[in-house]
Structures are given as structure tokens and as C-alpha cells.
Design a protein around this nucleic acid. Structure first.
Length: 115
DNA sequence: AGGGTGACGGGCC
DNA sequence: GGGCCCGCCACCC
């Protein structure tokens, strides 16, 4: 490719970071951006996922927002798809939210909620 | 060229 | 809790 856009590099780093999220866990857009060396650019993480090639094996569903909610319009098709995928990995939703202390990728050192 | 937008997030009230 | 504002920055008119 003759004119690789600078953003392509950022997307690749973000996608690589998302691949590191373990099955059954979730990470926030901010955490993913930071893990990709792009701190303070959570929007870029969202943009990179929005631009994932169709059929990509990147586990995009493991990325949710800092409130523990899915960043799609509630009950929209993609919202249901993401929730379905997470629940199939054992992630539990309570009141439409995921407990980040329990299922978060980077959680505090002490995780009293883990049994 | 410039203004609007967004799969965000933190700070404040 | 909820809403607003603003920083952030690549994209898209």
C-alpha cells in the first residue's frame, strides 16, 4: 500500500489490544486505548472497532463503556448481538450492566468480588 | 478549509 | 443516580 494512513497503524494496535482481552472478560474503550499506547483517546478505540473488517476474528464484543454498558442503542440489533456473545462467555448482566470489578480485564489488585 | 460527529470518559453540579 | 460540558482526534462532508 503506497499511502498507508497513520490511523491504520493506530487501528492495528487497538485491534491487537482487543485480542488480548481474555474470553469471559470485558475491557473499556479507555483501557483498550491505553493498552494500545493511545491513552486519552477512547473515541479512537470505538472508531477502530466500528471499522473492523466484516468477519474479523477480533473479539469486539468484549469492549464496553466505563459504565459497564454496551455502547449501542439499547435493544438494537448490534446491542443484542454483543450481549448474546458476552453471555455465551459467561458474562452476567445485572440491570443491563456488567460488573467491571468482577469481569473487567484490568481490575483492581484486590478483587473481593471474585470468589 | 472548517464545522459536525462519534461503539468515550472524567469532572462537576 | 443523571445530565451537562469539555477534551480528545480521525473522519466525513
Amino acid at each position: 500500500m503506497t499511502h498507508a494512513r497513520k490511523a491504520n497503524e493506530a487501528y492495528a494496535r487497538i485491534w491487537a489490544a482487543v485480542r488480548r482481552i481474555p474470553k469471559g472478560r470485558v475491557a473499556t474503550y479507555g483501557q483498550v486505548a491505553a493498552a494500545a499506547g493511545l491513552a486519552k483517546q477512547p473515541r479512537l478505540a470505538g472508531y477502530a472497532l466500528h471499522n473492523l473488517p466484516r468477519g474479523s476474528s477480533v473479539p469486539w464484543h468484549r469492549v464496553i463503556n466505563a459504565q459497564g454498558r454496551l455502547s449501542f442503542p439499547p435493544r438494537s440489533v448490534p446491542w443484542r448481538e454483543q450481549r448474546r456473545r458476552l453471555e455465551s462467555e459467561g458474562v452476567v448482566f445485572l440491570g443491563g450492566r456488567v460488573n467491571l470489578a468482577r469481569y473487567g480485564w484490568q481490575r483492581s489488585r484486590e478483587s473481593p468480588l471474585l470468589d
